[in-house]
């Protein structure tokens, strides 16, 4: 029996979608998850998929990664029933041209990098360094301005410590899926 979270200002600013692209342990493909969440951390939707990558020397690794990320992102976005107003991805998993280039999403895309990552903003990305969290945000468009719903959403997630944490939850969800699939043989 579900318990509804109380409606709050945070949830009124729209939904955020967190994209993960994680390689198979054996290196033959990638798992993908799109975890949609309200601004107050309430889980709304979870989509998952996977793609196998060709085992051939004809492909460069980074092209394989990009191709897998594009395929997964497309599949997950198509399956997603919610309407997030913001998509976030880990900078080390998803390159700058996957979501804003290959998929041409109409909503803002923000790649999140931790300070210790080697990821850097692409030339056409806008970098934002919020205070205190050690995170770097690489926006595909101009960062949302003061007063905009997306700005309130991202600031709310930062304040609640929910900008990086949901990526871990998405990975935990993928582990559950894998675990069940493994049991089912």
């Amino acid at each position: 029996m579900g318990i509804p979270f109380r409606a709050s200002e945070a949830s009124a600013d729209g939904l955020a979608a967190f994209l993960r692209v994680i390689p198979f342990p054996e290196g033959t493909g990638y798992d993908g998850a799109l975890f949609v969440m309200s601004g107050n951390g309430e889980p709304v939707e979870f989509c998952f998929s996977s793609v196998e990558t060709p085992r051939t020397a004809l492909w460069r690794k980074k092209d394989l990664v990009r191709r897998a990320a594009v395929e997964l992102a497309r599949s997950l976005m198509n399956a997603c029933r919610s309407s997030p107003v913001l998509v976030l991805a880990r900078a080390e998993e998803v390159g700058p041209d996957v979501l804003s280039g290959a998929l041409e999403l109409s909503i803002p895309v923000c790649r999140v990098a931790r300070a210790l990552d080697l990821s850097t903003a692409a030339p056409d990305e806008h970098e934002e360094i919020p205070a205190g969290d050690g995170l770097h945000l690489f926006w595909s468009v101009e960062p949302p301005g003061h007063g905009e719903a997306t700005r309130r959403l991202i600031d709310g997630l930062l304040t609640s410590g929910l900008l990086a944490e949901p990526f871990d939850r998405a990975e935990a969800g993928l582990r559950e899926v894998r675990s069940v699939e493994t049991q089912q043989g």
Binding site: F35, L162, E165, R169, A172, R175, E176, V180
Partner: peptide
């Protein structure tokens, strides 16, 4: 699986 996902995707206790 649905139940397990609900638990896995729940907000962290600290929040």
């Amino acid at each position: 699986l649905r139940d397990r996902l609900r638990a896995a995707l729940a907000p962290p206790i600290a929040t």
